[in-house]
Amino acid sequence: MRAAVITFPGSNCDRDMVVAIERIGGTAPLRVWHGDTALPDGLDFIALPGGFSYGDYLRSGAMAANSPIMREVVKAAEAGVPVLGVCNGFQVLAESGLLPGALMRNRSQHFICRDALLRVENTDSVFTRGYEQGQTITIPVAHHDGNYFADAETLDRLEGEGRVAFRYTENYNGSQRDIAGILSASGNVLGMMPHPERAVDAAHGGTDGKVLFASILGLLEAA
């Protein structure tokens, strides 16, 4: 299993993502710099971490989506490599066109950091197959721009195709249809606002994020 974590200027959950992947997979992922023009060969998994790439200037995720390495990430995603974007990573995926919709400012206009209860809506993807349909899991959120928006047609399509991965049981940020995470049409790209890498260790107060990483890393039995 060869995994890579991309670091943009302003990423600040990149180390946490590396630690989580190594903790669950046993092997440290490769680290890739935003200015690199090629991805390492033979990747099985790419993660875009949380943070404030380019300070969220212009629009969160907008500038990172145009960085050199993202052209390669898009190609890899189109070739079927699983790509996970968490928080700012989700914003980058939306800005890059790999996922539909946009993440707007939270309805409260405030940053919000808390544990979020999520309902698992899809258990078919490479990311979510370890969960049970309808299961409630606890994963922390920490974002200012997590209010998911898409037009009604897009939302209907996402729901119809089973591409809503997670929903908030209580809508903290104003997201359309309580959406916390969505999948690409082919199912190999997941964007989610909650931070599964902050829920992989008993010391975090919960380990519901472990199953997600174990699913991607093909280690479900071990989780």
């Binding site: 959950c13 946490d16 989580a20 950091c113 975090h204």
Partner: peptide, 9 residues
Amino acid sequence: QQYDSQVGA
């Protein structure tokens, strides 16, 4: 809740 108290894991 307006402070990220968890970053760094």
